[in-house]
Design a protein around this nucleic acid. Sequence first.
DNA 1: AGCACGCCGACT
DNA 2: GTCGGCGTGCTC
Length: 660
Amino acid sequence: MASVARVMLDSPLPQLDRLFDYAIPPALASEVVPGVRVTAALRSERRIADGLVVDVGDTSDFDGALAPLESVVSPARVLAPEVWALARRVADRQAGSASDVLRLAIPPRSVAAEKKWLAREAPAVVPVGAVPAVEGYASSAVESAVDGRARVALRSIPGIVELPDGSSVGRWALTLAQAAARTVASGASAILAVPDYRDQEQLEAALRSVVPGELIASLDARRTRPQRYAAFLSCLDDVPRVIVGNRSVVYAPAAKLGLIALFDDGDPLFAEPLAPYAHARDVALIRQEQQSCAVMFAGHTRSVEVQRLIELHFLTELAPVPLVTPKVVPTVAQDPQSRGDAGRVPSAAFRVATEALQAGSVLVQVARPGYVSLLACRRCGQAARCTHCAGPLQLASSHALPSCAWCGRLAGGWACSECANNTYRMVTRGSGRTAEELGRAFPGTRVIVSDGERPVTLVDGEPRTLVVATRGAEPVAVGGYAAVILLDGERMLQRESLHVGDDCLRWWSNATALAAPGATTVLVGVGGPLAQALGLWQQHSYAAAQLIDRRALGFPPAVRVASVTGKPAAVQQALDALLEVPIRDVLGPAPVTADGPRTADGGLVRAVVRFDYAHGSEVATALRGAVLRGATGTRRPPAGQKRQRPAPTLRVKLDDPEIL
DNA sequence: AGCACGCCGACT
DNA sequence: GTCGGCGTGCTC
């Protein structure tokens, strides 16, 4: 019987981010096994911490007397050895704490769900029927990639498929489901990660058509806590499964992992907002290295990150055979004469839509509403101004009163300064407004609106139906749309970001992929390389060109970056720790202004460090050391001052996609 | 983060 | 002589 347990304590403190040895009391000897939750005293008998047993043994490197474990919380071995190895590596790479990663990897415990799971009968091995060949690619190309545990960038086939149960999903979902079915049929598990629940629903429907439902585990955050935990526990069974979920599913325990696949890895939802901020793509790559499974990045576009890995020959490109290229018509002409009756819709797009409405549904993609909905006098068109400071008036939401963008005062009893009229109209419009206008422009059509607040997942695809959707909220149409109109491209491109181009191309490509075979997509008001990439369905060419630009500028993913935020002294201390590390350069430190609610007290600064992939671990180690010193060497303010917040600890973020 | 240990000022 | 103030440092 082992007498020493090595325990990872559940604490975000960087000082505690290492294993602690505890003596195993004889009474607990049979229960203390790797992976179980335990409690243990920390520094005093009165302070009990939660922890996870990583390992057991008979010796300890610790010089002092070992404290005994307090209790075993449950016999469920929730921390699988490979998940521990993954968490440690991810934390080290991100200069963060393993327990922070484990909090993402192991969902909150539900006692009821756990009891039920512990009392279950041994899970039966469900045979997977014959898996049909993955169609649309070179003969058994996808199968070989899965079987050979390859690393591939898969170009998804645009279009919609109808499943045997009558539902319609994106064709990408069926491809991934078949790859997963192949994996399970060979006796291994597959992890499939998607950006959001709408993608997940499609993928689950596709999966149900190719593997028995008992083998599918869905780890989505939309379910209740017990449901989530039950699904997590089912992954611990020694039975190959298909595990589906959002970004954190890449940490799921999986019996004999054979495949990790991400769909649309360029979606910002794959970037983890919680410390240590590891991107699901990076986690998948680490895990594939540790467990020698296949890894697959599928999508209708190519992220610059994946393009880089292809050019390094780390990933192999897998394209459909024959290539499937949707028909895309860019319309750059913006002269007012060419506009049709719908005002915003140029006549070319108007014609396409009118004709297509006879055959089926038409998708109109619009920008997200509510950036700023400025107001103008309904009668004379004069911009509505605040009576107090003359600032522009705006609507925060459709039911809000107009308010001033400058001073924030509500403008309840507004009247036009020019003509004294007291009714206004919106100058920029959201999806609802667009829908109203389009409904008038296309008489006799049914208008369906889908946006972030009220998303629609599926429409029937019947003729004379106009579906107005904000980018990212486009419903799937049975049989595919008869036409797709990408309306607000110009406006989408106005966002100030390093990735506007990539993002827009992704939004447009994903909408285009919802079209029926042979249907036309019209890209309104955009020309240049983006329109060309979409028109030729060569998103990879755009990504390759972007990568060249990023290399020239020294931007990610050509280089890696780390941001260091904190009090000036703490940031300087961190930069000093990097003096011996071969980094490229340091940008800043510069004062942080619009970073969160605390602006007044902080005086925070941020520096950005750029470095090469080859020196990632050295940079992470040095920054981790600085974080540790910042946490332990907390000098309290000199006596006399009231208890001030402890000095803002150093915040280190590696590969933040929003940086620069 | 907690919590204990430690080294200086006013108390029965 | 010791009770307790808070500054410092560690946590198996």
